[in-house]
Computed example of a mutant assay.
Amino acid sequence: MKIDHSQPLEYSTHKNEMNILGFWIFLGAEIMLFATLFTSYFIYENRVGNGPSGAEIFEITPVLIETVVLLTSSFTIGLAINAMRLNRPKAMLWFLGITLILGATFLSVEIYEFVHYYHVGATLQTSAFTGILLTTLGTHGAHVTFGLFWGIAIFLQIKKHGLTPETANKSFNYSLYWHFLDVMWIFIFSFIYLKGMM
């Protein structure tokens, strides 16, 4: 395996470059998935039937906590990649660990939110609106859950093997994935929660 030392570690082999290209293509497919969910949401958002509307069930406090926590995690994963490029594995692991804690906090608040929806009668079967709302939020939450397990695996690999072209490549792709989840959350926050509270 030929390593190009003029490139950042995550791009330092041909295989790594292809992995990153492939991951961008994967994210393109993920964009289409979320675009489909958002389109479905916009079609069904006013079809509440006998169930509650967004204005009746959305609570601003948990949504703001989720938003601040997830956007902060985007910053900390950026600091982790910066530490990686400076060849500071301990600092990288600290920032990656903080990112994972923030991700777990986000999921905890989202679980609270889902329990709240259930108690106010907003379930998958209540109406077209609640069905697509919970599907969209649940899909994003499932992605965050997967991201937590993936991040833990990378954390353990770096702890065991240190920063290598392989672990750096995985970490960089992971950071792209995490930033993608944050961007999707901005759309959820803006076009589902804020719009629904008005």
Score class of each variant (00 low, 15 high):
131 G>E: 13
189 F>A: 10
50 N>K: 13
126 T>F: 08
34 F>G: 00
90 K>M: 11
151 G>A: 14
45 E>N: 06
106 F>N: 04
16 N>F: 08
187 F>V: 12
65 I>T: 10
150 W>L: 15
43 I>Q: 06
28 G>D: 12
76 T>Y: 08
31 I>V: 14
188 I>V: 13
15 K>A: 12
43 I>P: 01
24 W>T: 03
64 L>V: 15
156 L>W: 10
155 F>M: 13
125 Q>D: 13
10 E>N: 07
71 L>F: 11
170 K>W: 07
74 S>I: 10
185 W>D: 06
14 H>M: 11
31 I>M: 09
81 I>V: 15
46 N>G: 14
116 H>R: 08
194 L>V: 13
192 I>R: 08
85 R>C: 00
7 Q>G: 05
77 I>Y: 05
33 L>I: 08
73 S>I: 13
179 H>Y: 15
66 E>S: 07
25 I>R: 02
46 N>T: 12
16 N>P: 00
85 R>M: 14
121 G>R: 01
86 L>R: 06
169 N>V: 09
181 L>H: 03
8 P>G: 02
100 L>W: 03
114 F>L: 07
154 I>D: 04
142 A>D: 04
74 S>E: 04
96 L>W: 04
112 Y>G: 04
34 F>N: 02
163 L>Q: 07
183 V>G: 06
7 Q>S: 03
100 L>V: 14
139 T>D: 00
113 E>V: 01
7 Q>Y: 11
124 L>Q: 10
132 I>E: 05
17 E>A: 12
182 D>Q: 06
55 A>K: 09
184 M>N: 11
91 A>K: 15
134 L>P: 01
37 L>N: 07
139 T>Q: 04
16 N>E: 01
95 F>N: 12
129 F>L: 01
6 S>Q: 14
119 H>V: 02
187 F>T: 12
69 V>K: 05
127 S>G: 03
105 T>E: 07
180 F>S: 03
87 N>T: 03
33 L>P: 02
120 V>P: 00
111 I>Y: 15
73 S>Q: 07
111 I>W: 06
71 L>C: 04
183 V>Q: 01
44 Y>F: 05
181 L>N: 11
157 Q>D: 14
122 A>G: 11
76 T>W: 05
178 W>R: 02
36 T>E: 12
